[in-house]
Design a protein around this nucleic acid. Structure first.
Length: 811
DNA sequence: TAGCTGGAACAATCC
DNA sequence: TAGGATTGTTCCAGC
């Protein structure tokens, strides 16, 4: 329980309410006991400048409580943000005549880094080549500060696949600093013009900038691409991916892909087709992601991030995923701190919000320099530029996207009123949009913030999150895609936060703080492109399940910002999977007497007459220690429902509830996600077994479930101050695997996260118990936040904040 | 015409 | 290692 104690401690200390004041910012670090200086230990000799710590880290990295974590993390978050940034920014804001940031001497590393970018950076290169944007137009400051971001952001979209050669090499080698930067030049094939940014559509004023600052503006994307491009999405979609033709797999899959229309006609492609020789765009990926930063200490990257004016802009791209996760993701928060405007990152309002006069130097840079990262919004009653109360909205720090944030706190609750359909075929960059995610019953998902009585509109953030057994985090292979058009009634903005595209939707008081999400599609990025990112450890194959993650940042009277988050039920995005894999959306029972025999109705999709339902008990290490096939009533089997008789548990003498998993199997490799069910001791009172529709959180959530619960009860009790959310646990059935595994059924957002946590812990049985990889934290507001520690970065020197892999890894 | 959709071909990868 | 099964990605066609 040592660990537990520590966690608990975190719980209370950890804040998700970010205080715009130093106090708040520092809070986290303090709790973590992070020693800003710790950075130095992690950073390369040169990078360990005192100033960096402040800039670089964020909360993410370490699981609080972990020794390693403590050492690594926080410096950045708290201290860094508050102290560092401001000062740092100030100084950095001064731009050198040449556009390079006026960094202070100690930051030699950074300076050099920047220099590299400047000189070698693809970004710059492109710009020059493209000749699209006069250098004069690019504010030096912007260029300097954003460079990393730009690059990162842009690479994917702008680089032509052709350039991949170099990228590949970079990838593989990832070794030399030079190699990184070299490819732009090295590869003659790289055609700056090809940048997706060139998409005709981009020409649209609205669309143009949005894509990311970097993407377009900074790139100065010529946009002269053939207007013929049929897909509007090109621009948007390409932002991330390497746009090109095919390459997904290591080899080009299709002959025609290279020769065919893609090359010749595809509007997406740059006017100047890239030589076949460079089949892959990966360069882009590498470039944008790992490129510049990959050779740099993550800390430096973070620092750069901090320098970046725009929180939304991130260096992350240039950083190995791992690093990115740990450092960059948080960057936003850090960056925000820097922003005086008082915009919170998450709620990041469009830059447009700031009036030039009002905008601090950086903001200026941010806005003027590059196009906004935000897409312009269609006319709508809601004014993005609508002024916000400066006093309350100044909180600079916001939780990184991979932080686990509760869905409810105090009087507020962010709730998904209408869940999305369990299936939504995502579209590739090479395809046209497949439309917005819809609700099962028709219409679209909707989200509402309850308990908010102010008149100020807020911003609802939406991004695509994972739906696996691990903690919720931005999905590496999917991005939210903004849908526009006549059929879309909801206005939205796009922003990029740590490599993750975020859709920002207004939550208006006049709409009861409810938003109908009819503007969000899902873009699939090629596995090969993502997997090639430095440090990316996730694999795309069969990783086709996502969740819509909604966040809102509520300004508090005390100047802090309260962040709430809720995740939808899982959504299967693969065409084939959606057609073939069984899917359990609901289960009529959450628990059953240990002797079994109880009938349970499963609702979902793709059930077959010969579908089998297998119950399994997993050991902490994930091994199945018991398996039993449930009897199914074939006569009652329908494509959307299945009736099974729960088999008796292997040990009829259990004295405490035991949670097991089960799945529907349609054949080899055609299994549903794990669902959960709790066996109750024979003499124990049945907690409750209700139809899934009832969304009974109970059962599993009952304290009695301790046996299964990976996490100490106290933890949950604190978090789950909230009544079980209907949409959560049991009901959400579908994939919620992890979530349900817990004994608690928290609200969709929070709960899920928590569940994940627990499940992870349970599954792994590792350190998670005590203070596993996750940091369970509790905001000042009393809300706990659980955060998954960053995935270990394979390639780079782990950011200082990185905790020991073992502890960090959820799975 | 552009955006959505459903379906399926083709190729890489897995088993 | 060969071959079938899967899965990912792209293309096509219809609405």
């Amino acid at each position: 329980m040592t660990g537990l104690e520590e966690d608990q401690e975190f719980d209370f200390d950890f804040l998700f309410e970010f205080n715009q004041s130093d106090e708040g910012a520092v809070a986290a670090p303090e709790h973590y006991s992070y020693a800003p200086p710790s950075i130095s230990t992690a950073l390369p000799p040169g990078s360990a400048h005192p100033s960096l710590p402040a800039l670089c880290h964020d909360l993410q990295s370490a699981a609080p409580g972990m020794p390693g974590a403590a050492a690594g993390q926080p410096p950045g978050y708290g201290g860094a943000v508050d102290s560092g940034p401001s000062g740092y920014l100030l100084s950095s804001s001064h731009i050198r005549p040449n556009g390079a940031p006026a960094l202070e001497s100690p930051r030699i590393e950074i300076t050099s880094y920047m220099g590299l970018h400047h000189g070698n950076n693809q970004f710059f290169h492109d710009v020059e080549v493209g000749d699209v944007i006069p250098s004069s137009k690019r504010p030096p400051s912007t260029a300097t500060l954003n460079l990393p971001n730009l690059e990162a952001y842009r690479d994917p979209s702008c680089l032509s696949p052709a350039s991949s050669l170099s990228s590949r090499s970079c990838n593989s080698e990832a070794s030399s600093y030079e190699s990184n930067f070299s490819y732009p030049y090295a590869s003659p094939q790289t055609s700056p013009w090809q940048s997706p940014c060139v998409s005709p559509k981009t020409t649209d004023p609205e669309e143009g900038f949005p894509r990311g600052l970097g993407a377009c503006g900074l790139l100065g994307s010529p946009r002269h691409s053939p207007s013929t491009s049929p897909r509007t999405s090109v621009t948007e979609e390409s932002w991330l991916g390497a746009r090109t033709s095919r390459p997904s797999s290591p080899c080009n899959k299709r002959k025609y892909g290279l020769n065919g229309r893609q090359l010749s006609c595809s509007p997406h492609h740059s006017p100047t087709p890239s030589p076949r020789s460079s089949p892959r765009v990966s360069v882009t990926d590498d470039t944008w992601l790992g490129n510049s930063t990959q050779y740099t200490s993550s800390a430096i990257v973070a620092a750069l991030n901090a320098l970046s004016t725009d929180s939304t802009l991130e260096l992350g791209d240039g950083v190995p995923v791992k690093a990115r996760k740990t450092a960059l993701d948080r960057c936003p928060s850090v960056a925000l701190k820097v922003e005086p405007a008082g915009e919170d990152l998450g709620a990041t309002p469009p830059t447009s919000e700031f009036l030039p006069e009002e905008v601090p130097p950086f903001q200026h840079i941010r806005k003027g320099a590059f196009c906004d990262q935000y897409l312009s919004v269609p006319q709508h009653p809601y004014q993005w530029a609508r002024p916000r109360s400066p006093t309350s909205y100044t909180s600079p720090s916001l939780p990184a996207l991979d932080w686990q944030v509760p869905s409810r706190s105090g009087p507020y609750e962010l709730r998904i009123e209408v869940q999305p359909k369990p299936h939504h075929r995502a579209h590739y960059e090479t395809e046209g949009s497949r439309g917005a995610v819809k609700a099962s019953a028709g219409g679209h998902p909707s989200v509402q913030l309850h308990g908010y009585l102010e008149n100020e509109p807020l911003t609802l953030q939406l991004f695509i999150g994972t739906a696996d057994d691990r903690l919720l985090r931005p999905h590496a292979f999917y991005q939210v895609h903004r849908i526009t058009g006549k059929t879309v009634s909801t206005t939205s903005h796009e922003a990029i936060l740590s490599n993750t595209k975020v859709l920002e939707i207004p939550l208006l008081p006049e709409n009861n703080m409810r938003a109908i999400v009819d503007c969000a599609g899902i873009l699939k990025l090629r596995n090969s492109d993502i997997e090639l990112r430095k440090g990316e450890t996730d694999i795309g194959r069969k990783n086709t399940r996502v969740r819509l993650v909604f966040r809102v940042h509520i300004p508090q009277p005390n100047g802090r910002t309260l962040s709430l988050q809720v995740a939808s039920n899982p959504i299967e995005c693969s065409q084939r999977s959606a057609q073939e894999l069984p899917l359990v959306e609901k289960q009529s029972a959450a628990s059953c007497p240990v002797l079994g025999g109880k009938k349970m109705v499963l609702s979902g999709h793709n059930f077959l007459q010969d579908s089998k339902v297998i119950f399994v008990e997993k050991a902490p290490d994930g091994h199945h220690i018991w398996e039993a096939e449930a009897k199914t009533d074939r006569g009652l089997c329908k494509p959307n429902s299945l009736v099974v008789e729960i088999p008796p548990f292997r040990n009829p003498r259990i004295t405490s509830p035991v949670q097991v998993s089960f799945y529907v199997c349609n054949g080899k490799r055609k299994r549903s996600q794990y669902q959960h069910l709790t066996y109750l001791p024979a003499n124990a009172p049945t907690i409750k077994t209700e139809p899934a529709d009832d969304h009974e959180p109970a059962l599993t959530c009952a304290p009695g479930g301790q046996g299964l619960s990976p996490l100490p009860q106290p933890r949950f009790s604190q978090q789950l101050v909230v009544p079980p959310d209907p949409g959560s646990c049991l009901v959400a059935g579908f994939p919620p695997c992890p979530q349900r595994s817990t004994v608690v059924s928290p609200p969709p957002g929070t709960g899920q996260e928590l569940h994940d946590l627990s499940s992870a812990a349970y599954g792994k049985g590792t350190a998670s118990q005590g203070h596993g990889r996750l940091g369970l934290q509790r905001p000042a507001g009393g809300v706990l936040a659980v955060r998954e520690t960053p995935r270990p970065v394979g390639v780079h020197p782990g950011p200082p904040q990185q905790p020991p892999p073992a502890l960090l890894q959820p799975q």
